[in-house]
Amino acid sequence: MTRLQKLILSRLALGVVTLFAVSALMFVGIELLPGDLAQQILGQSATAETLAAFRAELGLDQPPHLRYLDWLSGVVQGDFGQSLASRRDVAELLSTRLANTMFLAAYAAVIAVPIAVVLGLLAALWRNTLFDRSANIGALSAISMPEFFVAYLLILVFSIKLGWFPTLARIDSVDTLGGALHATFLPALTLILVVIAHMMRMTRAAIINVLAAPYIEMARLKGVPRWRVVLRHALPNALAPIINVIALNLAYLIVGVVVVEVVFSYPGLGQLLVDAVASRDFPVVQAVGLFFAGTYILLNVAADILSILSNPRLRHGR
């Protein structure tokens, strides 16, 4: 196992390097965007004089590399600075948003992942049956509509017609877990519908792919029942791509849900990031961007390690 530990350590170290690269990339991106914070906030009312005064106050008149290094030295000491626009501490700004984002992601994942994997397994087991086809068509139809449109349809049915769930996911107005689950049910359901198809189809494809291997044929000739073949022989060997696609979708649930946040007015990190990019609020963009990047990296390291553990050949090397 020391080999694995070394691997984990080296991957985490690499993750830190990746984070640096991401932060530099985001910084360059914001610098390249047309307009700066002063222009974005003053908008139509800007004049050359007020822009200059605003920039001086924010320190935007400093050369870019100095601003970046200044920010970086703060971060290394654990200080993410203040939002340029609202002068609030970035850490404070992020904390509630972060909790909201993680809550919604967990809500959707806890439901979506098991359903997707089980459906995928069943579809592979009962290949080309009515079940396989209808699961397939249902899942495909769900993902072939834009997220906001799925959300609108769910709102039409569950809020306007039936009146069961609210259209605004106002998590700030509830104080019990049950209340929170109720308030955020529609955004969670939207996300579940969006991610399920991808994971289900990949599970099915990976299993079917393995079913063609000679050792499966062997097992089957030995008279092992079909479900046992799928579960004991095919699944372990198909785990790597399944784990990867789950990791991708988990990452998506955390970092990619800005459209759902907008439709349900849910105060998550995605909207914060879009707002911060729109106003060129660099410390906020960096902090959210780094969190997203960190999440993504950790999920991937986890996925890679699990893939290795699931494949004896990779586990022991050669």
Binding site: F148, V262, V263, S265
Partner: peptide
Amino acid sequence: ILKVGDAAARMNALMTGEV
């Protein structure tokens, strides 16, 4: 005052009595 950026969401919230 809530920020509800999406026009459809605003109209839905008005119809369901949330705002």
